[in-house]
Design a protein around this nucleic acid. Sequence first.
DNA 1: TTTCCCTTTGAATAAAAATACAAAAATAGG
DNA 2: CCTATTTTTGTATTTTTATTCAAAGGGAAA
Lengths: 165, 165
Amino acid sequence: MYFYSKGKMKNKANRMKSIRKIVHERRISSQEELLNLLTEEGFNLTQATLSRDLKQLKIAKMPDYEGGYIYVLPEESSSLSKTVRMKSQDVHFIQSGFESVAFCGHFAVIKTKPAYAGGIAAEIDKKGSKVILGTIAGDDTILVIPKEKTDRESLVRTLSEIIPL
Amino acid sequence: MYFYSKGKMKNKANRMKSIRKIVHERRISSQEELLNLLTEEGFNLTQATLSRDLKQLKIAKMPDYEGGYIYVLPEESSSLSKTVRMKSQDVHFIQSGFESVAFCGHFAVIKTKPAYAGGIAAEIDKKGSKVILGTIAGDDTILVIPKEKTDRESLVRTLSEIIPL
DNA sequence: TTTCCCTTTGAATAAAAATACAAAAATAGG
DNA sequence: CCTATTTTTGTATTTTTATTCAAAGGGAAA
């Protein structure tokens, strides 16, 4: 039976933990980058060892949504989508029918409960604000087209006057 | 306005589909291996192109549980552990109705056969949450509104996973 | 201790993957 | 049709990652 003594394993185990931690917290895109961070933390190792560590830890390198690559832990390997999701600037209101409003360029997109879009869009159209050019409604989505020089802030303000918060 | 229609983009789109299919079905552990399979299927490309395709498809190479490496689709990247119960989460393609997709600024406009828009839009809403803010469907036209930071490339990719472009 | 495994590691290297650059193909918009 | 622009691709190369090989060191047990 082979044992791992405290002294012996300390380095490797700690290193492994640090690797997981760093990969979890930061956007690492190459072993070299990670290697530098580990060195800064006082670990002493080479790329070869790091490669082996990553293999043991099942840490993968996957394409990210910014055109680069990122290392991900096995449990969170789908966390890239999370990243993207978190980045979306959704403002969440609460109202009957109304679900959320988000922006794409200078357009606002309102999500509603199914079938509510038409009604709410009509409401917006009726209030015919000076900042809103028009709306296009589907079943549960409304595209709000603002007038040219309207900024996001005034659009939200206007919308919030039409749609009860 | 850039226009992708059914007939065009055939080579790349088909290749992408094949890549996804192969990666999903087999244990690929290097680009060279995959390249050979693609060549057998009649595709004509080099490792450079394959590398770019894999990047676009967000296919990652991760350590497997047999001491090697395996390429995995983004949706299944955490499912390596589930290799055994691998449920084939097949991409649900819509077989007909689709006519074309075009772009106008950030937005994509999908033309469909009459009356198909609603159904396809629903499909897109269901599957495209990562990059798509919402859709607005008429009778034969769908406006696809992407999330803010989404580039055309990711949007096309997402759409092509839902609809056979 | 000595011997035998086993594990870990680094240096060097091989293997694999990503990209710069240029050219070719495709497409929008006259 | 023609032109400008964008996209796709291959070649050659760089960059990155994996592994080979040898060596060092620890634990176990005689």
